[in-house]
Computed example of a mutant assay.
Amino acid sequence: MLDGRPLARIRTFHPRRGRLSDANRDALARLWPRHGLDIDPAATEPLDPGALFGRQAPLVLEIGSGMGEATATMAAADPGRDYLAVEVHTPGIGNLLRMVDAENLTNVRVACGDALELLRHQIAPASLDAVHIYFPDPWPKARHHKRRLVQNAHLPLLASRLRHGGVLHMATDWAEYAGAALAALSATDGLRNDHDGFAPRPAHRPLTKFERRGVTAGRDIFDLVFRRACR
């Protein structure tokens, strides 16, 4: 508390809108009512995935879906699971909705807002089959490290939302962040590493334009795959 007022939560993302193409603007207008979800930090009950997707299926949470290419590709190849993508970048949301429509993907929904608020208030404990965090903002300056998504402060929450045996998969092209995340994940109660250190690149994770830019710039790609330990 500060002067009797609650302290504001530290954001792990840059709120930004960007320029919408006509196609993405149209997708937002047409498809958001059917496929979109506004994150509600005042929610008192968790979401009902069965109502959201119209069926009961394992649920994957994609945090920071960017322009949506990876989410759409994985959802198309994995029709037995449902994908809830979280993004704050309006053009990316519109682009993913456009791909969902073009490919007739029934197992994708898109949430707009803070993923941590979604996890706190709208995702039930032990309800997620997987959490994907692909190329999150590395917040490279030391004074901004507190804004990183994958850190000790947030990992107990993330782990608690995974079912037993559920997977947390992170990928980054920022070596220092990868090392810090590996240490934090390894120290989180209830999570165990599927590999001895970093994981080999899983075949199911699509190669995106963002990742290609990192490789072209000479940066290594690091995958971390941790699993919620079964009791």
Rank of each mutant, 00 (worst) to 15 (best):
D114W: 05
C230N: 00
F53E: 11
L105D: 08
A102M: 03
T172L: 01
I10D: 10
A57M: 04
V150P: 00
A199Q: 01
F53P: 02
N152I: 07
R201K: 12
W139M: 09
L155F: 10
G4P: 09
A217D: 13
S65L: 04
W174V: 00
P33T: 12
S127R: 04
S160C: 06
D38K: 09
L224A: 03
P91Y: 01
G80Y: 00
G113S: 08
P138F: 04
G68V: 04
E176I: 13
G36C: 11
R227I: 13
V150I: 15
G92W: 03
L185G: 07
H89A: 06
A43F: 10
H35M: 08
A85T: 02
A175S: 15
A175N: 01
N95M: 07
N104G: 14
R30G: 09
P33I: 11
E117K: 01
A126R: 14
G166N: 01
A217H: 02
P58F: 04
P49N: 08
I133L: 14
T44H: 13
R9K: 15
N193W: 08
G218Q: 12
I63Y: 10
I10L: 14
P140A: 11
G66D: 05
N104M: 07
E87H: 07
D26R: 15
D129L: 00
L224H: 04
E103G: 04
A153N: 04
V86T: 04
T216Q: 13
L61Y: 11
I133A: 10
L149M: 12
N95V: 00
R9C: 06
E62I: 01
L168A: 06
P140S: 11
L168V: 10
A126G: 05
K209C: 02
L182M: 13
M67V: 11
H121P: 08
G179Y: 01
M170W: 00
G4L: 14
D26I: 01
L207W: 06
H169E: 04
G4A: 14
R25D: 15
A70N: 03
E211A: 06
R109T: 08
G4F: 14
L182F: 11
M1D: 14
I133C: 13
Y134A: 06
Q56W: 05
D82G: 02
V60W: 05
P41R: 00
L96N: 05
T188S: 03
E103W: 13
Q151E: 00
A199W: 04
D194K: 14
G54D: 15
A115N: 05
R120F: 03
H144T: 08
T172M: 03
P140I: 08
H35F: 15
D223K: 06
M74G: 03
P58A: 03
P138S: 13
V100G: 04
F198S: 02
R30N: 05
R148L: 07
A29M: 11
F222I: 00
G165C: 11
N104F: 03
N95F: 01
